[in-house]
Write a protein that binds this DNA or RNA. Structure first.
Lengths: 342, 342
DNA sequence: GTGTTATTTTAAAACGGTTTGGCTCTTTTA
DNA sequence: TAAAAGAGCCAAACCGTTTTAAAATAACAC
């Protein structure tokens, strides 16, 4: 049913009906009441594409999806969807070709120019992120999930990676660990740099020298967790503790330790970052995994909120949120076994 | 830039330009060449919302996202996105409230009626799935990822769950196992039923009685994998082998076995179903995990293909694909330790 | 009852494309 | 060489809303 027909049935003009449904003040309360009631009864719904054309709004926000190893992606998306569903706003997923970095910028360009989305969410930025500069140049509203040092104003939501890892590392030092390895995220991403900094600051605060041979960077996969930790554990003296970037990395570390006959929580301590997944729980691992924790789904929900605020006209500079991260201690952390020997 | 202006710059009518760009035959090859070139040069792109309004097509397909434990979701989505990106078709993600089953139907209803999508993908159907009946009634094209017995024609793509689990179970029997436990997916889903059938048929073919105390159903989480397998392993006599529904389940089983001092690949054999994730690899586990394997991402890509065919008018009854599943044997399967005692 | 103001309602002009049907100019067919 | 067919292009109608500017009606003061 079209607006025309519906209005006719009500004995009103299309204008009045449109206004009544959109909540404009120029229509009497009585009329509005009647219109909304009849709309529900007769099942009239404005054609979404006509609305989009005439308002120029897309009614959707864009998310770019990387190809590799993004198991936290669906949690973030779930949060987004949960919040946006209530607002009648769609989520648009675009795939990115990880192998071809220039195509990424083109993708954002296309997305911005296509008019398909009202805003975009940028993930895992780098300190000097070209996507951010590009979106700003194109005038497309966007929210950065993470942070960047780039010289244009931008809205962001991030967790306190630096503080989280500083606390995790400090705690391990408190327990008596001196050789602490770190398996971090991909080189160059801001969050990895922040974690690096938290790690180094914690060491420095206690006068423990930084050893580059104890730090590795890469995707958050079980495989890299295994390979890196294995190679670390083969060093002499070997590290007594690990700070790991993700749950999958932690799985790899557990595996490596076990493969070398080392007991987690006694000979090797581990703290990992946990994005909180319904299907893999740090507290359930054996031994249970100490973790810095922050819900990825909650970040998704809040990101949706912030994007909505952005679109409602809230100044970009105001939309900046840094979330604290919990540190939850479980069985995988303990004083180093070496301490017992001493 | 609008079509009007662009056409004027070319000295052509909007009609001709539109036709040239959309590949209609009523325009000379020379003209088409010129139009496409200039479009690229001047950066003209048809306004997507205008196109949608006038053609009545939404240019998007809908995917409903459950809330709980869907770690394979992002892989499927990735595949979809990969294929659909090339076609200028969007993916719309709608969240579903798992706790409220009636809301699910409403959601599909809204999606179908809203005109936001041209087609929908239905996941993890049940044999008598109301969503399928609903979508058929509403006349919304859809593809089922999985299968259903429901009495309306529908397009589907599924993997041969029954055959996969039959082979896995048979193989375990061949190795000498007699007490084989099965940790399956959620009760009531078609794929779970198919797997149950594969399992029971394999047992029956060898005259091994079916023992309901060795079968469990639930979400694919590490936690349930642990709890179920743990309780199975506490039985006397205990099972010597497991067939598991997912990688996460397998993680739980490994954990449970280890917590009871049982060695995987010697005292306990495990075969799990592997959807092929970039971040968690069956071959990398210790011991490496035997698996029935089928790429979720590939299913996503193909699903996109099939939906496109559906929209192009291919009869629903023709669009039905059953994929074979590989069985890959690794270290987690061996003859039961009991055999050595005998 | 009239003039003024506030409240509702309306007709018509966008929004930016696609597509129908018709027109003009060549090329073929008889 | 006239008629028919075909190629290539165009003008105008249309898709279903929102919104501007103007008109109609109601409410009020005098």
């Amino acid at each position: 049913m079209k607006l025309r027909e519906f209005a006719q049935q009500l004995g009103l003009s299309p204008t009045t009906v449109s206004r009544a449904l959109s909540g404009y003040p120029e229509v009497s309360e009585k009329t509005r009441q009647r219109v909304t009631e009849e709309a529900a009864r007769l099942g009239y719904r404005p054609n979404i594409n006509a609305v989009r054309l005439v308002t120029g709004r897309a009614g959707a926000i864009g998310v770019v999806m990387g190809r590799s190893g993004e198991f936290h992606f669906s949690e973030f998306m779930g949060g987004l969807a949960e919040r946006l569903g209530a607002e009648d706003i769609d989520i648009l997923v675009s795939p990115m070709d990880d192998k071809n970095p220039t195509s990424e910028l083109q993708l954002y360009s296309r997305l911005a120019v296509s008019g398909r989305v009202d805003a975009v969410i940028v993930h895992s930025p780098e300190p000097n992120d070209e996507r951010i500069a590009l979106l700003h140049r194109l005038g497309m509203p966007f929210l950065v999930h993470g942070r960047s040092d780039v010289d244009v104003p931008h809205a962001w939501l991030d967790i306190d990676n630096e503080g989280a890892i500083r606390r995790a590392t400090s705690h391990l030092i408190d327990l008596g660990h001196r050789r602490i390895a770190m398996i971090n995220g991909r080189q160059g991403r801001t969050f990895s740099l922040h974690r690096d900094k938290g790690y180094r600051d914690a060491l420095e605060a206690r006068g423990i020298p930084f050893d580059p041979r104890l730090v590795a960077h890469g995707n958050f996969t079980d495989e890299l967790g295994f390979r890196f930790s294995r190679s670390f554990l083969e060093q002499t003296p070997r590290p007594t503790a690990f700070v790991a970037g993700s749950m999958m990395t932690a799985l790899g570390i557990y595996r490596a330790a076990r493969s070398m006959g080392l007991e987690i929580g006694r000979e090797v301590s581990v703290i990992a970052h946990d994005d909180v997944f319904p299907y893999l729980t740090a507290g359930n691992m054996v031994p249970s995994l100490s973790a810095t924790r922050s819900s990825m789904r909650a970040a998704g929900v809040r990101s949706a909120d912030l994007v909505l605020q952005l679109l409602a006209g809230r100044p970009v500079a105001e939309v900046q949120e840094l979330w604290p991260v919990e540190l939850i201690l479980r069985e995988s952390t303990a004083a180093p076994a070496a301490a017992k020997n001493a």
